[in-house]
């Protein structure tokens, strides 16, 4: 078997390492979105993992505790859809916020309005950290 034939046979048998790395990076990014900080924990970036988990957790707990508006899928307009997208960014913490906010939102007070911002900021921040974990897994300097 010539060298070229052998290389071609190997490339069919084993996926290229870049593809495997990309798949792993995507899995890490998704894990980081579902559980804040998990994407970094899987890469043994413990400090970042703990801090991102804590920061997103505090923002969600305080936001829900302030009775911020937790958007739902049946929003109706573009702003509600954007709000839902931002809130979903918290991953599994979206259900934590739902669990805390049993009385529903109350944006008739200033703190309720602030709570809405806290929840949205937590979601967007978590998306950012998940993206950071994905980039780190791809080998980008992080």
């Amino acid at each position: 078997m010539t060298n070229e034939t052998q290389t071609a046979a190997n490339s069919v048998a084993d996926p290229p390492p870049d593809r495997a790395r990309e798949a792993r990076a995507i899995a890490i990014g998704v894990a980081g979105w579902v559980v804040p900080g998990l994407g970094h924990a899987l890469q043994k970036m413990w400090g970042r993992a703990i801090m991102f988990f804590a920061v997103v957790g505090v923002l969600v707990i305080v936001g829900a505790g302030m009775r911020g508006n937790l958007f739902r899928s049946e929003g109706g307009d573009a702003f509600a859809a954007l709000g839902y997208f931002a809130d979903l960014g918290t991953g599994s913490f979206y259900w934590l916020a739902k669990y805390i906010e049993v009385g529903g939102s109350d944006v008739s007070h200033a703190y309720g309005d602030y709570g809405t911002r806290f929840l949205a900021a937590a979601g967007v921040l978590n998306l950012l950290t998940a993206l950071h974990a994905y980039e780190a897994a791809r080998g980008r300097k992080a």
Binding site: I61, V62, A64, G65, M66, R67, I100, A110, Y111, Y114, G115, F118
Partner: peptide, 10 residues
């Protein structure tokens, strides 16, 4: 669980 933070605290 409820939080009533002032503007400055928030």
């Amino acid at each position: 669980m409820k939080f009533h933070l002032s503007h400055l605290q928030a």
